[in-house]
Design a protein around this nucleic acid. Sequence first.
DNA 1: ATCGATAATAAGTCTATACATAATCCCGCG
DNA 2: CGCGGGATTATGTATAGACTTATTATCGAT
Lengths: 238, 238
Amino acid sequence: MVSYKSIKAEILNGIVGRQWAPGELIPNEEDLARDYGCSRSTVNRALQELADLGILERRRKAGTRVAQRTSRGALIQIQIVRSEIEQSGRRYGYVLLHREVQAADSATAGLIDAPRGKPLLHLRCLHLADGVPYQLESRWISLVALPSARDVDFESVGPNEWLVTQVPYSRSEHIFSAAPPNAEERERLRLRPDEPVFVIERRTWLAAQALTYVRLAHPGLSYRMISREDDLLDETES
Amino acid sequence: MVSYKSIKAEILNGIVGRQWAPGELIPNEEDLARDYGCSRSTVNRALQELADLGILERRRKAGTRVAQRTSRGALIQIQIVRSEIEQSGRRYGYVLLHREVQAADSATAGLIDAPRGKPLLHLRCLHLADGVPYQLESRWISLVALPSARDVDFESVGPNEWLVTQVPYSRSEHIFSAAPPNAEERERLRLRPDEPVFVIERRTWLAAQALTYVRLAHPGLSYRMISREDDLLDETES
DNA sequence: ATCGATAATAAGTCTATACATAATCCCGCG
DNA sequence: CGCGGGATTATGTATAGACTTATTATCGAT
């Protein structure tokens, strides 16, 4: 029996082997089904998944063509900082530096995308790997969206870990940047002179409601964010 | 008729509405098919797509459960630098600084993941937005994998643009970091004192063969890399 | 109680068929 | 020549049914 996976693999081979150039039309589903001796449904599934991956482009009546991949995607997996550190074989450490309930002023309201005046929980924490400063976290949590956060002291469990167990989110935004450190970062992260910080900012929402904004600062000389794209031609996987 | 999209939407609503907690089992395909009054195939497609998105986890006989989303993904779209600049409404400028064929020494061989001694094309280019330095590119291209690159002068078309039209790739790796600038970056990018650079490094392969390694340096005070995740609850899309 | 064979289960895949829908082609009318 | 409208076409979606496969549960023998 011809599987949709084998068809995926054959089409991919045809693409990387330049049998079909980018932009070129490939045969329609019926023809492929006849070629491979299977039903159109099977071909359809294979082509749809390749289209989902951005490798093919399909339009009704117009047919299926090899996509012009002018932009390259990189999928970043941002883990809980504890598991990130522990997976690299180091010991995780955590310190809560500051905890305060405040009303959203114009600056913080813009960051978290919540109305001014609403109550926010502001936290600052330091995460360490083998005792060395790894990440300085500055977080605001909307107490309108997450009132239960008011009763958590965050002394022993980081806000990151607490949030993922509590809250689903439906939308998120990440911003990555390189910045000169401010005074607190220079001290807490024990930065060397001229060492910049790598900054990750994240905002999450559930439907229209803002949940949290966080700024994560890492020492620039030791932190790397890595993204690997699996080999398309490895047929051992989905 | 009940569409697989409406089922996807209802399941998602059940998840964000805490009808099913993370880790919890949801009904099996047959039951859902009866509930919704559709065939099992339709339910299957809906659940499979949610599993592909990482929202559900499925195992034969064990059933389908809501995934514990302990890591959050961010999909970065890295475009050709020309379109990145032009889409922001600015004028694109390009200068080739250096072009040289060289044999891979131990340092460059490690970067591009090619054997030592093989010929490489080394290019350095500056990309400008409205005349202001935007990105300093330093690239090595394997002339074993891409012999035709030897005959391209890259005076008017950047290597990035040439590569995407020429070459498919099957695997890639990206590394993002913040770094203090070296002397050339400070000068070419006209960095202010203490301004770091945001660095993107990319390597690509076709099957086992390394194609190219590139290091892209941006001025840290003006460059931001942004990733937005679409709202899962918006039913207007796939 | 432990182990191993077997049954039961839920998802995974494939098929043939039907109809829906978007996009294109093309023809004929003005 | 341009335009509108219908025919055509390729993909999109849904269905019932059958078979496969991974995994778990169970039951029986030791």
